[in-house]
Amino acid sequence: MEQKIPTMAAMAAEGKEPEILFWVGCAGSFDERAQKITRDICKILQHVGMSYAVLGTEESCTGDPAKRAGNEFLFQMQAMTNIEVLNGYNIKKIVTGCPHCFNTIANEYPGLGGKYEVIHHTQLIQGLINEGKLKAEGGESFKGRRITFHDPCYLGRGNNIYEAPRAALEILDTELVEMKRCKSNGLCCGAGGAQMFKEPEPGKKDINMERMIDVLEAKAQIVASACPFCMTMMSDGVKHMDKDQEIKVLDIAEITVRANGL
């Protein structure tokens, strides 16, 4: 990175409080593909000059996969420990790089004492576009390329956020096409509910391969995603069909960074 990524600990040592905390998440921290998206979100924050910080090594799993898998104990242990850290830094506003972290912190932490204004990075991008701080210029042109957006369940159905990610695509001079199953009818990538961390139950095929039917039908050249787990599943699906030359899977943040040449 050109600029150093500020941590909460360093900021607090200087007696400063950032405007927003960037909650990176486990995938964003460890998964190589998602790390790239994490760095792109930082580039956007730096580009618009927003004061932000990350927790760095003080961040821990939100507990989402434990909760969806039924381990409420582990979830609440994680939640309460995280809330202690967040409240300790007097955090008011959080942006997450993952719909699962977003849903958990926004909806499930308040009942356990963690009340913050939480947005997903696609909402951050939408807000910056609306404020005129973020455009699509100076970078790669997406003109004439067919882009489709795959709705992550915990952004779409889970929290009724359908427009924010599309707003980030609409400013590109591009052809935005919808898949047959989209928005509230969107088909899951197959990773949710802790499926990411286990083998699928016996069946006829894997869920990401079912989703590939919609991708091919939409004749999309770019599948835009907004979730690191969807990213894994969709990329695997495209690779499995030997289509990784024709179809690229990119996060909304990556597309924004490319379009602006950041």
């Binding site: 460890f30 961040e59 799993c61 381990n71």
Partner: peptide, 26 residues
């Protein structure tokens, strides 16, 4: 899933990565 639980509990992530490496992406 039990492995995942163990990872979350011990290293704060569903995968077997050390908590100390969590900021290496930067």
């Amino acid at each position: 899933l039990n492995n995942m639980f163990g990872n979350v509990e011990n290293n704060g992530a569903p995968w077997k990565y050390s908590q100390a490496d969590r900021f290496n992406w930067a």
